[in-house]
Design a protein around this nucleic acid. Structure first.
Length: 917
RNA sequence: AGGAGCGUAGCUCAGUUGGUUAGAGCAUCGCCUCGACAAGGCGAGGGUCCUCGGUUCAAAUCCGAGCGUUCCUACCA
């Protein structure tokens, strides 16, 4: 075999698998299905995606090999706001505004962009080895899914679970659309707190002081509120202030919401521009004066002077005017949470507008129950708390967006503004007996992207039709996702699916940790710390990486810092590690932790691991391929041992996959392949395979080498799909069978009959003898090549039997000058000692070892044992321990003490002898 | 402010119902080109399991408080 070069094998295998249709459900076995969290159609894969999909792929491949009828449903999301934003930006580059084009032409452009860039994510998924069922790929805006959306909207409306109303919503003044609470990100920013004087209306010199961070909203104030128990202001309640600059009279009201201790204890109330004030306004029946246009400039409800200017310019003007009127008490610096639109990055405004809402509470109740009852299980379980907290305080969901790219709301208005909802204009006309000459116009808005995503598990399977796919694969088995979209998506899928399908969308929710950079920072374009999984697979030069990270930044001034950090973190760029290594890294770091720091050193380590497996396979082939291994063979103890270890590993993996502990599965595979198969089994076969032993004995070795390798490949395939396939294909069909692909072979099962404890004990003895000798060599600086005499002293009958059986192996591994067996009363030379149970393994000092070095080595060992002895004696000397601890625990300590005591005796005796030389 | 998570070797992390000599990988330090593999082999060093207190015969593990850190939710205008 050539050197391990992942790029030589990976893409070719994926193409073959896909061409052969191996990703399709087999049609046999019990159904197992997972719906992919739909990536944005025009998006690219980031590390978090790669992580999730890699985990899912192992599960899919695992279940497929287990014989399940396995479906991994592919699909993409139209990503309303994000896509519209990109298309708008592209048009802007050409100097075109969306309004120049109009709705139809704009949507044409958007579809063109989708066709052009929609393939990126698919290519990336293929490079990851994701065994998705591409043939039934769906898109949230395709005909079928749009029909599902329509159906759901209409039925919800008919059930009074959707309504339209004028409400305060989060408004993005750049995108000019409402956005959901979840799409708003608040971060602490420096601001100011202005203390303003509001003169009392019926007094010449008295005024109230109100504090605000948003002085420009004062133009829309409709009250000033104080706490009802506040002695300072009690007498003023019911009076009025004269709102500066507008000369409106607004009442002083009392409300428990007001905190007497903050600021002056007086709050200006602007119901149209603040969520708390909105609530208060409704409680007190205050007028709501909206002073903003949809781009957050001041509108005609404000004094003429300020009309048409932007909110921040207006702020400056207002502050200046107030100051001139001597109405500015003071200004303080103030830290506050500023809400910004996730997509645009601009400060969002609470804005009064007509919107559509889903009544969430009635839908939430069954969803909560499904989780409470265990019909849906979160893994790790503590995420259920997040879910419950969210669901029990759920707010109505604003589903309308003032955008073009998305599902248009199926509502029509007549000239009087009456609203009709239906699957089509014709249906509306028929249902309401509207004559053809009644003009109807459809609602201009589209639905929130998450509305269609919420139907994902069943809409992709053909709903509202009753399809065989829906019947077979719904509910899906597990949803793998990040914790950040539990509220966005997971909870809404549960609500909608229960409502429309009457069953849960998935039985389990596996919540992955969030992949961060090496410093624990969230990866993002703006921070310039993101990694493209493909760059780890294919490698990238430092300059290209810097260019990629600093290209088209929103804040170009960050570029220098990003470049510096990147050059520091990746001085040589990124080497090509291959998909298998990247995948194995993901499994290894998939612990229960919430955040996962991605460390390139680990990728390198697992690339080395792939190389190790590759070379081990190479060894096996060199020693077997020229020979017929189908002849008779009887496995010896060593063979039975490695089979035992293999079975043990299979058992661990099965258990790990049941509990979604990918890290433990990866660890078990790593340790089996490297620590057991490569370090010991392969080494133990060498003296036999290359010896003049009988054909039957050698054949047994060759058979076991191939057969264990073959099983190992199947065992590792869900995690390392490419290299396992490549190697597996080279295994003789006499061993692997006639199958065309490892993908569709059976996953190894643990066979209890093949577990051989005696073989394990024998190999443990061999390991002990060998490592003991190596330890002496290492610590005494005796080179590996130098033959040394070894004495087995005071061994028991079992030791003798083992020595006789394994002498050839020991000679190969230890390379001794001689091996001598001495009885208890034989004279032994001064020697360096290692204990193997009661037996002493001796390497005579003569000519090899410095006495003082050996004394130091013995002292270290004696010291270690003495500490243990003291600790255990302490335990056993404590009557409470002996009385109360379980007998087994006490006995274990007693056994340990006996072993240590006897070992100490021997070591001390040895030390005494050497000291007296 | 409320809720949750985390704090174990220089770094990144395992440690599942309390009983292990507290482990792994990377990094470090020796030695080794012996035909699978230097992307390697062999060996070694390295820990107050954040702190304090409690429960227990026994605590990295359970409980409480504190410190540090991350995230979520709600925000005081």
């Amino acid at each position: 075999m050539d050197k391990y070069q992942p790029q030589d094998i990976e893409t070719a295998w994926y193409q073959k698998w896909e061409a052969q249709n191996y990703f399709a459900p087999s049609g046999n076995g019990s159904p197992f299905s997972i719906a992919i969290p739909p990536p944005n159609v025009t998006g690219t894969l980031h590390m978090g995606h790669a992580f999730q999909h890699t985990l899912v792929d192992s599960l899919i491949r695992f279940r497929r090999m287990k014989g399940d009828n396995t479906l991994w449903q592919m699909g993409t999301d139209h990503a309303g706001i994000a896509t519209q934003l990109i298309v708008t930006e592209q048009l802007a580059a050409e100097g075109i505004k969306p309004s120049d084009l109009g709705r139809e032409k704009f949507l044409e452009k958007a579809w063109q962009w989708k066709e052009k860039s929609g393939g990126t994510i698919s290519k990336q998924l293929r490079r990851l080895g994701a065994s998705l069922h591409w043939q039934t790929e769906r898109f949230t805006l395709d005909e079928g899914l749009s029909r599902a959306v329509l159906e759901v909207f209409v039925r919800l409306y008919e059930d009074d679970l959707i309504y339209r109303g004028k409400r305060l919503v989060n408004w993005d003044p750049v995108l000019k659309t409402s956005i959901s609470d979840l799409e708003v990100e608040s971060e602490e920013e420096k601001g100011h707190l202005w203390h303003l004087r509001y003169p009392l209306a019926d007094s010449d010199d008295q005024y109230l002081i109100v504090a605000t961070t948003r002085p420009e909203t004062m133009l829309g104030d409709t009250a000033v509120a104080v706490h009802p128990d506040d002695e300072r202001y009690k007498s003023l309640i019911g009076q009025e202030v004269l709102l500066p600059l507008t000369n409106r009279r607004v009442p002083i009201i009392a409300d428990h919401y007001v905190d007497q201790t903050f600021g002056s204890g007086c709050v200006k109330i602007t119901p149209a521009h603040d969520f708390n004030d909105y609530d208060m306004g409704r409680r007190h029946d205050l007028p709501m004066i909206n002073v903003f246009n949809d781009d957050a400039s001041i509108n005609d409800n404000a004094p003429e002077k300020y009309r048409g200017i932007d909110r921040y310019a207006a702020r400056e003007a207002i502050l200046k005017d107030l100051d001139n009127l001597n109405l500015m008490e003071k200004v303080e610096d103030h830290m506050m949470a500023v809400p910004r639109g996730e997509k645009s990055g601009v400060v969002v405004e609470p804005f009064l507008s007509d919107q559509w809402f889903v009544r969430a509470e009635p839908l939430a109740a069954p969803a909560i129950k499904a989780v409470e009852d265990g019909d849906i299980e979160f893994i790790p379980k503590n995420y259920e708390n997040n879910f419950f907290v969210w669901m029990r305080n759920i707010q109505d969901w604003c589903i309308s967006r003032q955008q073009w790219w998305g599902h248009r709301i199926p509502a029509w208005y007549d000239s009087d503004g009456a609203v009709y909802v239906g699957r089509s204009e014709q249906e509306v006309r028929d249902k309401h007996n509207l004559a053809d000459d009644v003009a109807l116009s459809q609602d201009e808005d589209v639905l929130d992207t998450w509305f269609s995503s919420a139907l994902w598990t069943f809409s992709t399977l053909g709903w509202p039709d009753k399809t065989p796919e829906l019947d077979t694969f719904h509910s899906t088995d597990v949803m793998v996702t990040g914790h950040d979209i539990i509220t966005f998506w997971v909870s809404r899928m549960i609500m909608m699916t229960l409502k429309f399908v009457g069953e849960v969308p998935f039985k389990k929710v596996y919540v992955t940790g969030m992949v961060t950079d090496a410093d624990g920072q969230k990866q993002s374009k703006s921070k310039g710390n993101g990694l493209d999984p493909l760059d780890i697979i294919d490698g990238i030069s430092l300059d290209d990486l810097v260019a990629k990270r600093t290209d088209s930044l929103l804040q170009p001034k960050m570029a220098a810092r990003i470049e510096k950090n990147t050059r520091k973190e990746f001085p040589d760029g990124i080497k090509p590690y291959g998909t298998d290594a990247l995948r194995f890294t993901f499994y290894s770091i998939a612990t229960r932790s919430r955040t996962i720091r991605f460390d390139m050193n680990r990728v390198e380590g697992y690339r080395n691991f792939c190389n190790k497996l590759w070379n081990a396979a190479n060894f096996v082939f060199i020693n077997t391929l020229e020979h017929d291994v189908s002849a008779d063979h009887t496995p010896d103890v060593i063979d039975r041992w490695i089979v035992t270890e293999l079975n043990h590993t299979v058992e661990i993996i099965n258990q790990a996959m049941e509990t979604y502990r990918y890290d433990l599965a990866a660890k078990a595979i790593y340790e089996f392949i490297w620590d057991e198969f490569c370090d010991w089994y392969v080494e133990l076969t060498k003296p036999i395979v290359n010896s003049d032993a009988s054909a039957e004995i050698i054949n047994a070795k060759r058979f076991t080498l191939l057969s264990v390798l073959e099983q190992t490949l199947r065992m590792a395939h869900p995690f390392l799909p490419f290299m396992t396939e490549e190697i597996w294909q080279q295994i003789p069909t006499a061993i692997r069978g006639e199958g065309a692909t490892i993908m569709r072979e059976a996953y190894p099962e643990c066979n209890a009959k093949l577990v051989d404890q005696a073989a394990k004990n024998d190999v443990a003895w061999i390991k002990d003898v060998v490592t003991g000798t190596r330890n002496i060599r290492g610590e005494m600086n005796i080179s590996q090549g130098k033959p040394i005499p070894i004495i087995f002293y005071n061994g028991g009958a079992e030791d003798k039997i083992r020595l006789d059986a394994y002498q050839t192996l020991l000679e190969f591994l230890i390379r001794p000058e001689s091996i001598t067996w001495l009885q208890e009363n034989d004279n032994k030379p001064p020697a360096s000692t290692h204990l193997v149970g009661d037996m002493q393994l001796l390497v005579p000092l003569a000519g090899l070892i410095d006495t003082s070095a050996e004394l130091a080595r013995l002292d270290k060992e004696i010291d270690r044992k003495e500490k243990d002895k003291t600790r255990i004696e302490g335990k056993l000397g404590n009557p409470n321990f002996v009385d109360k601890a379980p007998d087994a625990v006490v006995q274990k300590e007693k056994d340990k003490l006996a072993d240590i005591s006897s070992a100490l005796d021997r070591l001390r005796e040895q030390r005494h002898k050497i000291a007296n030389l």
